[in-house]
Write a protein that binds this DNA or RNA. Sequence first.
DNA 1: CACAATAGAGAACGAGCGTTCTCAAAGCAA
DNA 2: TTGCTTTGAGAACGCTCGTTCTCTATTGTG
Lengths: 201, 201
Amino acid sequence: MADEQVRARVLEAADRLYYGRGIQSVGMDELRLASGVSLKGLYGLFPSKAAIVLEVLDRRHAQWTDGVTERVARATTPRDRLLAIYDYLADWFLDDTFRGCGFINAFAELGSISPTVAQSAREHKAGFQDYVARLVATAGADPALAPQLSILAEGAQTTAAIAGTGEAADHARRAAGILIDAAMPAVPSWNRLDERHSNAR
Amino acid sequence: MADEQVRARVLEAADRLYYGRGIQSVGMDELRLASGVSLKGLYGLFPSKAAIVLEVLDRRHAQWTDGVTERVARATTPRDRLLAIYDYLADWFLDDTFRGCGFINAFAELGSISPTVAQSAREHKAGFQDYVARLVATAGADPALAPQLSILAEGAQTTAAIAGTGEAADHARRAAGILIDAAMPAVPSWNRLDERHSNAR
DNA sequence: CACAATAGAGAACGAGCGTTCTCAAAGCAA
DNA sequence: TTGCTTTGAGAACGCTCGTTCTCTATTGTG
């Protein structure tokens, strides 16, 4: 099997274990068992556990970004594109393996003792916030809407994780709808001739 | 020194260390050093590290509850009482020791391997959500407002923790204001005679 | 002063960790 | 087949952890 495939198998197993039980609780021996790659093999592919952790976080960031953008792309109106974020969260929360945001978890566990983990979490969150800001800008809404929507998404994730239920996504979506309506012209600006018919809230 | 005072000193030191660096990263020896209580003394006062962790979480819950209710009590109108939550957060985020919600952190670190820690976090969050729900009910607002405000507070905490800045409190406060206005009659119900003058949004 | 009880310092213990090393088996070129 | 390289299984190493134990010094009490 090619190195790249073995790497992928290791990172998949590591992600599953680290996300499900915490990083410090999963030893290299368990990763060997779960991935089917010997200890020597693991240390041939990665210089250390810390390196594996960082690659797992990178992979998770890419998967999150892909998942959200794909869900957003399916929506048609600017308003629905913003709300699609919470639809994505709603689906994710229903997954039985859901245990909160992996970056929040990693940051909580290691952020204060591992600068690289802390940086990875910061970059992930900043990337998401930038993405939301771009969606908000494209929608022509007040830029102040962007951090509000990001905070809602953040709060929904931790609330759902700790409560063990998915309702938080619906609550966040409803709140987002209200905030969007307050920050966005009800009708696209190129249709402003009709505004007198559509300004009912 | 009385047992209760020694207990308090131990729990204070444990809280500072656990919150600042993570629970698993702080050993009993370090707690002995920070508290000035010998290992034998620690195990005389507490049966195990797990018991200390739980008491630390209980203490933290009480402090959070006291702090929030005190801040809320200072506000006069129902609307300001709801917004006071975010003022409390804003102050907290400026503390240099701020490192996110201790319960989210503990849950992320140990929730999946320690049922008692998971339960403590769930109870803490449920308690806060109930409190917000009571404030919302007292304000005569749509009950759906309560989980929205809780999610905003939750999201502000993790956002501020990872970003390392406190702006999230302001963003959450602004969002809360919009959501409150959308869910609450603009004028107290006992003044409804005037409603025809104040229904402008 | 004598003596029992206590408490502190720190060694000890058993377990688990990340990482490296050993050694035997397997594969492969010639 | 022979010799060389690579591989996997798992032992070994050095460390840290939570917890207990030992031993010494101290204290209070008669």
